[in-house]
Computed example of a mutant assay.
Amino acid sequence: MELEEAMEKHLRPVLAAHSEKGEFPFEAFSKVVADVKMLSDERLFADKTAENYVHSQYYNTYLYYVMARFDVSIATFMAVHAGLGYYTFLFGGSDEQKAKWLPKFQSFDLQTCFALTEPDHGSDIAGGLATSAKRDGDKWILNGEKRWIGGAGSADLIPVFARDIEDNKIKCFVVKKGQAGLRVDKIENKIGLRMVQNGHIYLEDVEVLESDRLPHINGFRDVANILYATRAIIGVLAAGNSGGAYRAALSYTSQRVQFGKKLTNFQLVQEKLARIVSNLQSQLAVNARVADLQTEGQYDEVRSSIAKMQNSKLMRENAALAREICGGNGIVYEYDVARFFTDAEAIYTYEGTHEVNSLVIGRAITGESAFV
């Protein structure tokens, strides 16, 4: 079964209700995974080495665009599990750890996430990460908090980034669901990505064996490599959000009658639709170029930041225009546009804010770091 067909069949009937309730449709999502077998597609997880992961990017670009065009919460859940979480183990794990866990992530027998950001540290996480790790024989003791961790409440394995109090380096530790000292509270009252279960994690003397530390993560540069590898996908999600907002707005305005005519008969409505389509073409061109560069192995943090920053900016305009031409009904989940409008704000911020990505690009242009 095709991905879009499966999402329409299993997820469409529960989408509005779960968005409004702020609950993830795990049962429906599992049916999509089973029908499409996307998590077992070798192109999604092609070449299980950090050096050669890039050639699957054409498939990833298409997959995440289609998912985000349907719903960004669904795409974000997938991007955290199969992107940030998966690549943390891929880039950071030993051969034994990868052999043990990666196949289970691919089959969705185990779910993972990415526990980096904290209540007081987001953009400044490189120098400000406060969660601590203390070595005690063959185990580590973790203390601290993590916030905005998508999928944390349901994850079986949580890769937690903490600062080693001995050498002050960031390391990564695999915390397992239900461990003593681990508590995950759901973040409530969000206006965007309503279905994504963002968690606030509390770690109080949580014990992790040395064998469950990912040995190839020994500083923020290693963390940054994960972010650069996955940030371009957020640029794809931004384009997908634009595509979804456009489809929803076009459907609504093609049916809505005002002053005796369909809204699509009005010049101002057509002008806004034209702007959305033009912006979307630019977004898709950026995504295609990034996929080319990734496949050629000519990919770096600057291109990642350009894709995320530019596509998110255009997405925000597109979502606002789509909501605008739907009038008051544009803020009601029943008409789809509302989800894309509010979700745009979340995409605009996560995986590097507009300001932080602009500074990454600016540093490459000028040779000067303006972060602090």
Rank of each mutant, 00 (worst) to 15 (best):
P13E: 05
L15E: 09
H18S: 14
E20F: 01
K21T: 03
D35M: 02
M38S: 11
A50H: 08
Y58Q: 11
N60I: 06
N60M: 10
Y62N: 13
V72L: 12
S73D: 07
I74T: 10
F77P: 00
F77D: 04
F77W: 05
M78W: 03
V80D: 03
V80Q: 06
T88F: 02
L90G: 07
D95W: 02
K98M: 06
K100D: 12
W101Q: 06
K104N: 04
S107L: 03
F108Y: 14
F114G: 09
T117Y: 11
P119C: 14
G122T: 11
S123Q: 13
T131D: 04
R135K: 15
L142M: 10
G144A: 08
L157C: 12
A162C: 06
D167K: 12
D167Q: 08
G181H: 05
D185F: 12
K190F: 03
K190H: 05
V196F: 08
N198C: 02
G199P: 06
V206N: 08
E207K: 12
V208Y: 04
L209I: 00
L214E: 09
D222K: 10
L227T: 02
A232R: 05
A239R: 08
N241D: 05
Y252P: 00
K261A: 06
Q267S: 13
Q270P: 00
E271I: 01
E271S: 10
R275L: 13
I276R: 15
S278L: 07
V286A: 11
N287L: 07
N287S: 14
A288Q: 15
L293H: 07
E296M: 13
D300C: 05
E301Q: 14
V302N: 05
V302P: 00
K308N: 06
L314Q: 11
M315P: 00
N318A: 15
A319I: 03
E324Y: 09
E324P: 00
D336K: 11
F340R: 09
I347G: 04
T349C: 06
G352R: 12
E355I: 13
V360L: 12
R363F: 09
